[in-house]
Write a protein that binds this DNA or RNA. Structure first.
Lengths: 219, 219
DNA sequence: TGTACATCAGTGAACGCGCGTTCACTGATGTAC
DNA sequence: TGTACATCAGTGAACGCGCGTTCACTGATGTAC
């Protein structure tokens, strides 16, 4: 017997999604996703299991299968949320620099690193090997592509303003992405521990170098 | 009863490490490490378990505990081997360019990326979150530090030759490291799949950009 | 407005699995005498 | 050279665990009439 009280339904429209004394959840998919995010953030990626998410959402361990085909599907949904949050964070960071393409570009990079720093496990899920094949997760592929487009556009802006050297912006974008992604990965996995500069400054310094590096060549 | 034949010992010195019809292995530590490397390379990091390594080495599942305190210790040993191999690969790549600091530097970067490309799972173990805390694995910390020193020295060479701009070489090294590490991570985790340039060329292009970027500023 | 019923989101129990680790043990080694 | 014995690298069985997934089921919903 369950410890959950069984009360008669009170209305037929979905509830405010807070009550959980009912047989039907209302929005279990959303609740599972939130639980999964909480798990990833607080316990790390390996703690993200279907069973743990169900537990945290207060439903039976078989319930998630009504909303996610399998574990990968939940993982992909978590990554998708991650890309959305990251893109939003980068946009927020860029916003104050609307008229200065180079500062805007740098803010984007700092936003990327800052997102990784504050959501390390989430970052790992987003870029981890489990989801390397995105062909089965088109929604994930799309949000990831959108983040990349933001970067390419920012570089193209710099080029138009004469602040970045010529060339295929996608090409420069891969370099810039590599730099901020690498810094993020190194920080997140503790590889820069005892290195001279405090972590806070690394983002500044590295993006500063990157920013110098992408400038137009005078030679 | 074991299916292994029991024969009387034939000599007391350690055997050529190939025979395995004896009760004592001879160099089980080495054999377990080799098994672990094989597992990581062929099945990926999650396949690396103490039991699987024991199986592959042909010993009981409890045997590894005579040589590794726990699973982390085996993992750390695998990562250590990885750093050694990577450093060796980079040195090999740099060798032909002994007198051209900038080419040498670039070869180092390409060597890094190439190592990651050809040993993706090993690369993940080396930089993964499981081993983020190296304080308990001093040997691992040392080989990792050596790789970083190689990079710093290469940058200092470039500066001395006037091919790289001024500044703390460690600072520039973190930028360069971020770039090659990021590119490696993105490639290894399949994030650059459909992107324009074939993977082969990405290393060339990105290191070329990096290389331009670190050059002395004329402005 | 009232009711039969199809739909489907949940339940709870079970499956088989492989893992890390511990334990008391035994076989082989090599050293002290 | 021969032997007793301490050492220790292996064995094999077992522990408890949590996982993904499946199954037959039941309770609630909301629609057709």
């Amino acid at each position: 017997m369950s410890m959950r009280a069984r009360r008669p339904a009170r209305r037929s429209a979905p509830p405010p999604a807070v009550r959980r004394e009912r047989y039907h959840h209302g929005d279990l998919r959303r609740a599972l996703l939130d639980a999964a995010l909480r798990l990833v953030e607080s316990e790390g990626a390996p703690a993200l299991t279907l069973r743990a998410a169900a537990r945290l959402a207060g439903v039976s361990q078989a319930a998630p299968y009504r909303h996610f085909a399998d574990k990968q599907a939940l993982l992909a949904a978590v990554a998708e949320e991650g890309f959305r949050a990251m893109t939003a964070a980068m946009r927020r960071a860029m916003h104050p620099h609307e008229d200065e393409p180079l500062l805007k570009f740098r803010a984007l990079g700092l936003g990327y690193v800052e997102f990784a720093r504050s959501h390390p496990a989430h970052f790992r899920v987003m870029f981890g090997p489990e989801l390397a094949d995105r062909s089965t997760h088109p929604a994930l592929a799309e949000v990831a592509a959108e983040a990349f487009r933001l970067l390419v556009a920012s570089i193209a802006d710099c080029q138009r303003a004469g602040f970045a050297r010529e060339g295929d912006p996608e090409d420069l974008a891969v370099t810039a992405w590599s730099t901020v992604h690498g810094l993020s990965a190194l920080i997140v996995n503790g590889q820069l521990g005892a290195r001279g500069a405090p972590i806070d400054e690394l983002g500044e310094r590295v993006t500063q170098n990157l920013f110098l590096g992408l400038g137009p060549r005078t030679a």
